[in-house]
């Protein structure tokens, strides 16, 4: 039953989706999602990997690595982007969707990542 309902909901959203491909939409402020279940830092942070590298660990590209950034530095950077303290090309629009708590969880996640290039990682270390 639950699933049937979901499908019909999705079909409705599909109709809207057809028209939205060409539009820049208004921002729904992050606080509107503050009561939702928490998105863990890893889920938030892994959305960054296409530009900043797997677990934030590409060191040889223009976009900076995020792994190992001290928590407070990361928070300051993201808050500056979010509040448009620094004009930026992409990051303002990336950062403004997050709640302060989400930025903190991402900061914890990246601060905990090893500060070394991903390509050096032995992924199977500890495999049985």
């Amino acid at each position: 039953m639950k699933k049937t309902l979901l499908v019909s909901l999705i079909s409705v959203s599909a109709l809207f989706g057809m028209n939205s491909a060409n539009a820049s939409g208004a921002l729904i402020p992050a606080d509107k999602f503050a009561q939702d279940p928490q998105i863990p830092g890893k889920m938030l942070g892994d959305n960054c990997s296409a530009c900043h590298g797997t677990l934030g660990r590409f060191y040889d590209e223009s976009m900076p690595p995020l792994a190992g950034i001290p928590r407070d530095v990361f928070i300051k950077l993201m808050q500056d982007f979010k509040n448009e303290v620094r004009p930026s090309i992409v990051m303002n629009h990336v950062a403004k969707v997050f709640t302060d708590k989400e930025i903190e969880r991402m900061a914890d996640y990246f601060a905990a990542q090893a500060d070394r290039p991903w390509k050096e990682e032995n992924v199977l270390e500890g495999a049985q």
Binding site: Y59, E61, S62, M63, P64, P65, I69, V73, K76, L77, D80, V85, R86, P87, S88, I89, M91
Partner: peptide, 21 residues
């Protein structure tokens, strides 16, 4: 510097805490 988006990579007033620029 402001209009040229320098801050985007080199930090506010040229003070950048990330390590690639």
């Amino acid at each position: 510097a402001e209009q040229g988006y320098c801050y985007s990579c080199h930090g506010v007033e040229g003070n950048n805490p990330t390590q690639s620029t």
